[in-house]
Write a protein that binds this DNA or RNA. Structure first.
Lengths: 233, 233
DNA sequence: ACCTGAACACCGTTCAAGT
DNA sequence: ACCTGAACACCGTTCAAGT
């Protein structure tokens, strides 16, 4: 953004190497997202971030009161980039697109995504986003209760799916003594039978199927009034 | 379990207070689950665990090679407690019961649950569990591909739902500068309209509805062959 | 205003040592 | 075999100080 390039004041004293761009919230946030993807959420520290930025860890605290504030800012920064589908579109199609857009955040920032997913969204930016999405459920023709409940069920699915796609197979804490492939086939035949469809390259299809299940429920409920399928056992 | 009470050898030297039960994997795991719920997953440390057990932090390392191994053992310990519904029952009903049983783990151990949910299940114990559950999807009449995909979509929903119920509203990192209630109604009307149905006491109903949506998809797919609803936009 | 660096109270874990 | 305690390489953050 604003690269003001500040002319270097040569005082003969120390002459900092290439006169670093001054710190700013924007620069810190950008670097933080990079460092998180390199080091993981656990490995991310203010000290490493400082190193990346060419400053002391403590300099960051002049722009953010705490590490938690910085992480919150990162959530907002990603959520504002989610494109809101045009209002002219069918509401269910808008919800579908939001699903894929939210998922994209996970795929673009897999190691940061668990923080996004487990983060309670109650900042201005994230509430604005939630408000838009919940509005789509209303526009789909749902009464307030069905709107609230189906939005939430939809977001449960979405959260679980993207968490699995980003943290499940790729990285994520895996068991320390895993089972060999031969044992797997012998001892856990159903897991082995499902295995081929669990390949990362095929997970997109699974995501689609689950998403369509949730979307069909929205359509069906809008048609038949009140939440159907509620007659649990 | 085995409280062997080992008679205290009085050597006149130090006379440890009530001659502590010797350490064991079982005792350590039990205490760890307590400390995690008291301190949270982040606040849980081997030092605090040692304090609780009346030993040095390092003594734990004689029973577990690392903190990660201990946490893995805790996942296994909880997963084995999940009751497997009798095979005589309708497969869909068995899946429903597994859903509620898994959810119970989250409610009994809310602060540990995110670790369970994000943990890749590939230990013997957890694979045995997965094998049973995937088998229920086969028993429901699904071909291998639908079995794999609907199991996974179901578990996405379940994971997302229980994560939200345990980490979402209760604790979990919440935004640092939240929005006031008046602003909420004024600026985010759809969120406000959904608010009443987001009360913790009403979340059980939302969980039920989403679960039934997923179960209905299993029934419908078993009836009509191959995964229905796959015709995404 | 913006940044530094020492210091504090924590971590997980290694290692040599004690019984 | 089981447990200890000092030590190492890390954390987030406070605070007084530098420019």
């Amino acid at each position: 953004m604003g690269s003001s390039k500040k002319s270097r004041k040569i005082k003969g004293k120390k002459l900092r190497q290439p006169v670093r761009e001054p710190l700013s919230r924007d620069r810190i946030e950008f670097a933080a997202l990079l460092v998180i993807e390199e080091e993981g959420l656990e490995g991310f520290s203010t000290r490493k971030l400082g190193e990346r930025l060419g400053c002391e860890a403590m300099s960051i605290y002049h722009h953010f009161p705490s590490k938690a504030h910085l992480l919150n800012a990162l959530v907002d920064r990603l959520v504002v980039t989610i494109p809101l589908p045009p209002k002219e579109l069918d509401p269910v199609e808008r919800i579908r697109r939001i699903g894929y857009a939210y998922r994209k955040i996970g795929h673009d920032h897999p190691r940061f995504f668990p923080y996004v997913a487990l983060h309670r969204m109650n900042s201005r930016v994230t509430l604005e986003f939630l408000n838009e999405v919940i509005g789509m459920f209303r526009d789909a023709g749902l009464d307030p209760e069905s709107m609230a409940r189906l939005f939430r069920a939809f977001s449960y699915y979405l959260t679980g799916a993207v968490l699995d796609e980003t943290s499940g197979y790729a990285k994520g804490p895996s068991a320390v003594d895993p089972v060999s492939d031969e044992d797997l086939v012998r001892l856990f035949p159903h897991v082995a039978a499902a295995g081929p469809y669990f390949k990362p390259s095929l997970l997109g299809r699974t995501f689609d199927i689950g998403l369509e299940i949730m979307l069909s429920a929205v359509t069906a409920t809008a048609r038949h009034g009140q939440t159907e399928n509620g007659g649990k056992k």
